[in-house]
Design a protein around this nucleic acid. Structure first.
Length: 401
RNA sequence: GCCCCUAUAGUUCAGAGGCCAAGAAUGCUGCCCUUUCAAGGCAGUGACCCGAGUUCGAAUCUCGGUAGGGGCGCCA
């Protein structure tokens, strides 16, 4: 109890100094963390009020003097600074990635999500990949490859390692076959409309019960020029709770399809293209990702990818999700910006009016400004609504250093 | 229709049951500095979405509202 008296006095002094006058409530509160038992509160209350009276009768100067003597009795509340720690970090560091699509170069939205992963790799050591997702031959902007590479180097330096998905198609094929052999994927011949119908009615499509052998044959027919035609079939994942999964987004999602559009980088080399969930899961497994941070809009995709991991007996990495940044008065869609540039509304990707990295770079913004912005936002999952002026006020202040 | 997420100053973040009569950055206002502007220094300003519940005690836990966002593609 003697020790508690000392603590009580210390907290009373602290309380008095920060608010002009000490009060009983806060002092008792803090004492619970110092060993005061709940059952003893009534017994001890009188003592505390005496101490408080004593403290309040002192002048501020005297209080300060007394507090200096007792300061070490008071424990400080911990305040978290800088980046929040990630769980499950090994000595060898972390392996993380940013996965932009090849539909266009970076804008400030990309920078926001990419920087946070990079900061963690810098903090813990490890590997950082920038993986260009170009498995949809219909939506690729040729110049994006070089621009993404250059902007990655500008933003992250040499640490960033560029990987291009369309260079790895055979790998995805290998995994597709693996999934079929594990009876976790099937080649579905139903039309999109028919399948959507099955989804809403929670019913299996007839292809779901095909044997592994039949599926392997169909898969070969998918890859074969003389086999299935574009739009006729799709490779589907057999979800764990099947077509009755309570979340319609989880019901037998597609893994690959035929698309005969000529690919800017690969030409007509491939006819079957993996869809995002297959390609992403395969790459994350192969590249040994330990932590993944992505936009909240990929929450359901992450769940789908986890199912693929589970089928293959792999441990799913730690996942973090970032709230969306919604700019009130700024167009971020690269597709729309691209169109506007082509129509001559802007002089190019580095037009001063555009929120692209190319533009901000030439305007004198430094990589550290974007990194600081990302650090400040951290792993927050809340959605942000911000207007252009507010955003740039913040960015400008970070750019000043 | 079904699933999921979020809610703290103007803005962005801190906060994991009591040391929170809520902290930081930025903004805004004022002062100092500077020939001026910028930068810098100092001070002021300003917030827990609403309602119940649990608890001696709730920004924090639970439930219910409300609001915002996302997903349910042969896009990523």
């Amino acid at each position: 109890m003697k020790n508690l008296d000392k603590k009580a006095k210390a907290y009373a002094l602290k309380n008095a100094l920060s608010h002009g006058k000490a009060m009983q409530g806060p002092v008792i509160s803090s004492l619970f963390n110092e060993g005061l038992k709940k059952s003893d509160v009534r017994k001890y209350a009188k003592k505390i009020s005496e101490i408080i009276k004593e403290v309040n009768s002192l002048s501020t100067e005297e209080q300060k003097k007394e507090f200096e003597k007792l300061e070490k009795e008071v424990s400080e509340r911990k305040v978290r600074e800088g980046l929040q720690e990630l769980p499950e970090v090994k000595k060898s560091g972390v392996v993380m990635r940013f996965a932009p699509s090849a539909s266009g170069p970076f804008h400030i939205g990309h920078a926001a999500t990419a920087c946070i992963s990079f900061l963690y790799v810098k903090k813990y050591g490890g590997k950082f990949y920038v993986r260009i997702e170009d498995t949809n031959p219909e939506n690729i902007y040729g110049k994006a490859y070089k621009m993404i590479e250059q902007e990655s180097k500008w933003l992250f330096g040499k640490i960033a390692e560029i990987v291009i998905q369309s260079d790895r198609i055979n790998l995805y094929y290998k995994y597709a076959e693996k999934l079929i052999k594990k009876n976790s994927a099937y080649v579905c011949t139903c039309s999109g409309d028919d399948f959507r119908n099955f989804v809403s009615k929670k019913k299996d499509c007839p292809c779901r019960s095909l044997s592994v052998k039949e599926n392997l044959e169909r898969w070969k027919k998918m890859l074969d020029k003389k086999g299935f035609k574009e739009g006729e079939v799709v490779l589907r994942f057999k979800s764990f709770e099947g077509m009755k999964h309570k979340n319609p987004a989880m019901r037998d999602f597609p893994l690959a399809r035929i698309n005969l559009t000529k690919h800017i980088r690969q030409g007509a080399k491939y006819r079957v293209w993996p869809l995002m969930n297959l390609a992403v899961a395969v790459d994350d497994i192969e590249m040994k990702m330990t932590h993944i941070i992505r936009g909240k809009d990929h929450r359901d995709n992450a769940k789908r990818q986890k199912m693929i991991y589970d089928v293959l007996g792999k441990k799913f990495p730690w996942n973090g999700f970032l709230g969306r940044i919604k700019f009130k008065d700024l167009e971020l869609s690269t597709t729309k910006i691209r169109k506007a540039i082509e129509e001559g509304k802007y002089s190019g990707w580095d037009d001063k009016r555009l929120p692209t990295l190319a533009s901000l770079k030439t305007q004198g913004y430094k990589p550290s400004a974007f990194l600081k912005f990302a650090e400040q936002v951290g792993l927050s999952e809340s959605d942000k609504v911000i207007d252009r002026a507010e955003y740039f006020k913040l960015l400008d202040s970070f750019n000043r250093e």
